[in-house]
C-alpha cells in the first residue's frame, strides 16, 4: 500500500530538515567566534541532501515510486575568514590580528526559513496520508 510509504518518505525529509536546522543553529551560535589562527576559526556548515531510492519498491516498469531524502554529509564553507586588527584581544596572533568566522547571518536566516517551510509541508503530507488511511480503514461503516 503506497500510502504507508508516505510516512517513511516524509519522515526522512523531517530528519533531513532537522539536520539542516541544527547546522543553522550551530552557525548562528558561532557567528561571532574568533581565533588567531585562520585555519582553526569556525567555518559555516551546510548539509548536502541526496535522494534515497528504495530498491524494494520497484513497480513493473522498474520505476521506483518510493524515495526519500538523506543527509549525504555536512560540508564547510570555503569562504576565507575575515581578518581584523585587534591587538588587545587575547586570541590575537603575534601581528595583532584575529580571524572572524565566515558565517553569513542573512544566508542562515533564509536557510532557516526554507527549512521551516519544508518541515511544515512534510508534516502536512503525513497528516493527509494519515487522514486518508483512517478513512480507508473505516470503509463501509
Amino acid at each position: 500500500m503506497s500510502l504507508f510509504n508516505i510516512f517513511n518518505v516524509s519522515g526522512s525529509a523531517l530528519n533531513a530538515e532537522t539536520v539542516r536546522l541544527n547546522t543553522t543553529a550551530s552557525n548562528m551560535a558561532n557567528a561571532e567566534s574568533v581565533n588567531g589562527d585562520p585555519s582553526k576559526v569556525y567555518r559555516a556548515r551546510q548539509p548536502v541532501f541526496q535522494t534515497m531510492m528504495d530498491q524494494s519498491d520497484l513497480d513493473s516498469d522498474g520505476d521506483d515510486s518510493s524515495a526519500g531524502v538523506r543527509v549525504l554529509g555536512v560540508v564547510e564553507s570555503t569562504t576565507p575568514p575575515i581578518a581584523r586588527y585587534e591587538p588587545g584581544n587575547p586570541q590575537a596572533n603575534k601581528d595583532g590580528y584575529i580571524y572572524m568566522s565566515n558565517v553569513n547571518a542573512v544566508e542562515e536566516m533564509t536557510n532557516m526559513l526554507s527549512a521551516n517551510r519544508a518541515f511544515a509541508t512534510n508534516i502536512d503530507a503525513i497528516n493527509t496520508a494519515r487522514d486518508l488511511l483512517l478513512k480507508t480503514i473505516s470503509m463501509g461503516h
Binding site: N5, I6, V9, A16, S114, A115, A118, A129
Partner: peptide, 12 residues
C-alpha cells in the same frame, strides 16, 4: 500521493 510526497521530501 506517494510520488508527490517524494517530490515534496526532495524539495532541497
Amino acid at each position: 500521493l506517494s510520488v508527490l510526497a517524494n517530490n515534496m521530501a526532495n524539495v532541497d
